[in-house]
Amino acid sequence: MGSRGPVGKRSGQRHGHRTKAEQEAVTKVQVDGGPLPVEEPDEAWHPIAQNWFRSLGLSGQRVFYEASDWATARYVAEAMSRNLEASRFSAQMFAAVMSGMSSLLTTEGDRRRVRVELERAVQTDADEEAAVEALDEWRRRLSG
């Protein structure tokens, strides 16, 4: 992270002139809450490692993952678990785990560095839509 948060701005927050190559360099993925990964975390892992592994299946970047990425994630979770369960926490192992997590694009900053933006589909609530329609009808009656 930079001193003021993740490095760089999202494409919609950038101002000024950009070349066509810069504009096309961002890969966007519509995230719709697709299926979880087939593999479940190892029950022998530390709960934090299990939670992290499960979170990958819920995260938008999973659409980019191939079998080798999931194998890497399994290895990172194993190393994370061993470090968390060790009698002495290893700063070197922590750095290696964080590096592996970064290569799997697990944080907003990691994804920004490779110009990937995840966009959640807008979900509307039926009650909210009904309230908006009622307000619109009320406005039409007042102005009519």
Score class of each variant (00 low, 15 high):
G2H: 01
S3D: 09
G5L: 06
P6L: 03
P6D: 10
R14M: 13
G16A: 07
E22L: 01
E24F: 02
K28E: 13
K28I: 14
V29A: 10
G34Q: 10
P35Y: 01
L36Y: 05
P37A: 10
P37W: 04
V38S: 09
E40M: 14
D42P: 06
A44M: 00
W45L: 09
W45N: 06
S55T: 07
L58C: 14
S59Q: 12
S59Y: 11
G60A: 15
V63A: 14
Y65K: 01
Y65D: 05
Y65L: 10
W70D: 09
T72V: 00
A73K: 09
R74C: 07
R74T: 15
R74H: 13
Y75P: 00
A77C: 07
M80C: 05
S81H: 03
N83K: 09
E85F: 02
S87Y: 08
Q92I: 01
Q92P: 02
Q92F: 00
M93N: 05
V97A: 06
V97W: 00
S99H: 13
G100I: 15
L104T: 03
L105G: 11
T106G: 02
T107F: 09
E108S: 11
E108C: 10
R112Y: 13
R113K: 10
R113W: 06
R115G: 00
V116C: 11
E119A: 06
A126E: 12
A126N: 08
D127C: 01
E129G: 04
V132M: 07
L135R: 15
R139K: 15
R139I: 13
G144Q: 14
G144N: 14
